[in-house]
């Protein structure tokens, strides 16, 4: 199966691309190098095929994975205590911590997904337009 066909399969329905990005995000988080999730978001956006939808798909892929990781951790350790402690250290309460924590995957998912989506559009522009059909339309007989 050619690469293009694989790409087309991953693009539709929409959740397949998000799932790819979700899995990639989890994998990259496992490396502890959080910056790698930009790749996951970009891939998700590329699979979305367009800039705007890439932005949304990027958030949908990266955000839940980011939160899921912490959710699992909270089952094992008192993460909520860390939130409160960090909030008091920052001098603004736990709400700021939650806000900053949520901001990271949203912004990265948004712009990296968008970048992936626009790149997909740029690549798509280089594809040939489908040739006009010379076959007569089936006529009612």
């Amino acid at each position: 199966m050619r690469a293009r066909e694989i790409l087309e399969q991953l693009r539709e329905p929409w959740w397949r691309g998000v799932l790819v990005g979700f899995v990639l995000t989890l994998a990259f988080l496992a490396t502890t190098v959080w910056q790698l999730i930009v790749i996951a978001a970009a891939v998700t956006g590329f699979l979305a095929g367009r800039g705007r939808s890439g932005a949304i798909r990027g958030i949908q892929a990266v955000g839940p994975a980011w939160f899921l990781w912490l959710l699992v951790l909270s089952a094992l350790t008192p993460v909520e205590e860390v939130v409160v402690l960090l909030g008091s250290i920052l001098g603004a309460g736990w709400g700021l911590v939650v806000f900053l924590f949520a901001l990271i995957p949203i912004v990265l998912g948004l712009f990296c997904g968008m970048a992936g989506g626009y790149l997909a559009e740029l690549v798509a522009e280089r594809r040939p337009k489908p040739a006009a059909s010379t076959e007569p339309a089936p006529s009612a007989r």
Binding site: W34, E81, V82
Partner: peptide
């Protein structure tokens, strides 16, 4: 970072 950030303190 959910994996390795300040959360490990807990």
């Amino acid at each position: 970072n959910p994996n390795g950030g300040v959360w490990t303190v807990a």
